[in-house]
């Protein structure tokens, strides 16, 4: 996969290295800006409130 990309980049080795670096940075940017914020709520790491997602009344009776 990476070898295939490398072979299809234009220019000599230095130009290819530069383009590869730019591509990697673009991918990291896209991950940080769009993919990770989207994926974060789907993962169970960061709920800090009580009664998360439960109807208030039922949670109370259940707790008793």
């Amino acid at each position: 996969m990476y070898g295939w990309i490398w072979r299809h980049l234009p220019g000599n080795a230095w130009v290819r290295a530069l383009i590869s670096l730019l591509l990697a940075l673009a991918i990291v940017y896209a991950l940080f800006q769009y993919v990770f914020p989207w994926a974060e709520p789907l993962l169970p790491f960061n709920d800090v409130t009580v009664d998360n997602g439960l109807p208030a009344g039922s949670a109370m009776t259940e707790w008793r």
């Binding site: 009580v50 009664d51 439960l54 707790w63």
Partner: peptide, 29 residues
């Protein structure tokens, strides 16, 4: 438990408060 919403009641059980007053509650994970 995350379902224990009594901790943010006006007089939370277990907090040691007996009578209504001006309290603050911080919740985190």
């Amino acid at each position: 438990s995350p379902a224990n919403i009594r901790v943010i009641q006006p007089v939370p059980p277990g907090s040691g408060f007996r009578a209504p007053g001006r309290y603050i509650t911080l919740t985190t994970c």
